Simulated scan of single mutants.
Amino acid sequence: MGTLRFNEEGVGIVLYSVTGKFDGRELSLTGEPQTQIEGYTFGRLTAIATVSARGTLEGEWETEVGSAGTVILFRHDRPEAGAALDGSKPDQLHTARHHFDAIEIDREQLIALAEEIQQDFTDRQVVVTVVARTEQSRFLPDFKALSFNEERAEIAKLYVQERGPRGLDRIVSVEFGPHVNVAMTQGADEAWVLGMLEKLKGYVRPYERSYATNFKRLGFGINQVLAVGTIVALPGIATLLDRAILAVAVIALMAAVVKLHNHYLPFAAIYLRAKPQGLASRIAPTLLSWLIAVTAGVAATLIAAYLQGSLGLPR
Rank of each mutant, 00 (worst) to 15 (best):
E190Q: 15
S67N: 12
I13K: 06
I37W: 03
N149V: 08
F42Y: 06
A132G: 01
E154L: 08
P314F: 10
E116H: 10
L291K: 07
S67G: 01
A268I: 02
I155T: 15
V294S: 13
H94D: 01
H179F: 08
G55W: 04
F267P: 01
G187T: 03
A252I: 10
I237L: 01
L241R: 14
A269K: 06
N262I: 00
L158G: 11
S88C: 04
I283C: 10
Q92A: 14
S17D: 13
F148C: 03
Q308C: 02
G236L: 09
Y40E: 12
E26G: 02
A102Q: 03
I105H: 08
S289A: 00
K259C: 11
H76F: 05
R124N: 15
T50K: 12
P235I: 01
R166G: 06
A84K: 07
A304H: 07
L234G: 01
A247P: 04
G59I: 02
L226W: 01
M196R: 15
K275F: 08
I37L: 09
A112C: 00
K275G: 14
E26A: 13
L218R: 05
A156S: 02
I117W: 03
E154M: 07
F148I: 00
L73C: 12
K21G: 11
A212K: 10
Y306Q: 14
A191W: 03
